[in-house]
């Protein structure tokens, strides 16, 4: 039996199916990724797993406890890092952590000990007595995570924990997650940042329009694309005529435009690149830069949906 089992989970808001018959398992000790664009249904899924939202149908079993029967037991196992900074800005970091520790049932010397540990993990021991509203975005994110670690949860559920922060804080968070996982903590990590999921997760579920459209290890998912590479070509201008001509080339799997760059997926990058250059020459379109990437989760998503992750 898996540590977490999600079976045929569905949730609708009016006519919108936010989560549509989703099933997957998470094994103890793994970092499981939920990858998908904004609005794909990841947060709704997380809200249901953390008992905050009642599913319309389906079952959630965490460490053999079934939801709606044993929600309080499930909550003891879970640590939620919400997408938003769910802290009290006018309280200090330490006051926040003490409060959240109490909410997890910690008292006395154990509470103080865990608060100190959490501050250490967040790297904010020196700023413990400063109000949270005086922190940078990255520091707030780190305390936001630390608050979920106080009761040493069996599963840490992180909903887009790096949104809007500087690279240094982002690295700190990613390293923290890896360290916690190495110490045995199971992690469910949701993000629309492909690089983070690829860096952290052993298995990934790709979610789009409320459905899991692919599930497996990173290698298994990449095999869905085959041995394809991604050509990223930055142009001065693009036109539908150019796109149509490139799509019509032999060996081109798919073509999309993201942030002004052409993304071409192909198993024969060298040969296709030469043909694309000649098309662009004919169409008088100038090339700024060209980059060839091996297949990744981004190209898997593009391959499966025809859209880029951040579209």
């Amino acid at each position: 039996m898996s540590y977490i089992e999600i079976k045929n989970l569905s949730k609708s808001y009016g006519n919108l199916k936010a989560v549509d018959d989703v099933s997957f398992n998470v094994e103890k000790g793994e970092v499981f990724g939920l990858l998908g664009p904004n609005g794909a249904g990841k947060s709704t899924l997380i809200s249901m797993i953390t008992t905050l939202l009642k599913p319309d149908s389906g079952d959630i079993i965490v460490d053999e406890y079934t939801m709606n029967g044993n929600n309080s037991e499930i909550r003891k196992i879970l640590g939620l890092v919400p997408q938003e900074i769910a802290l009290y800005p006018t309280l200090t970091a330490k006051e926040n952590l003490v409060f959240w520790g109490r909410m997890y049932g910690l008292r006395g010397s154990l509470l103080n000990e865990r608060v100190d540990e959490a501050l250490e993990i967040a790297g904010l021991v020196d700023r413990a007595k400063d109000r949270v509203d005086s922190y940078s975005g990255g520091m707030k994110r780190r305390i936001n995570i630390a608050a979920a670690l106080l009761h040493k949860p069996g599963v840490l559920i992180m909903d887009e924990p790096t949104v809007g922060i500087d690279p240094q804080s982002r690295n700190h968070i990613l390293e923290t997650v890896l360290k916690l996982n190495m110490e045995g903590m199971t992690v469910i990590y949701t993000s629309h940042y492909m690089e983070e999921v690829e860096f952290l997760c052993s298995r990934v579920a790709i979610v789009d329009h409320g459905k899991v459209i692919a599930l497996g290890t990173k290698d298994e998912l990449k095999k869905l694309v085959g041995d394809n590479d991604t050509l990223n070509i930055e142009l001065t201008s693009t036109s539908n005529k150019v796109l149509d001509k490139i799509k019509g080339l032999n060996g081109v799997d798919s073509v999309s435009v993201e942030e002004g760059k052409l993304k071409v997926i192909t198993p024969e990058a060298d040969m296709v690149l030469a043909r694309i250059i000649s098309i662009l020459d004919i169409e008088k379109s100038k090339i700024h830069s060209v980059n060839i990437e091996q297949s990744n989760l981004e190209s898997v998503f593009l391959h499966l949906t025809g859209r880029a992750l951040r579209d």
Partner: peptide, 14 residues
């Protein structure tokens, strides 16, 4: 609004 309510409900607070 600040989602602390959601976080509270994910703890042991009923």
């Amino acid at each position: 609004e600040n989602k602390t309510l959601g976080r509270l409900m994910s703890t042991r607070a009923s």
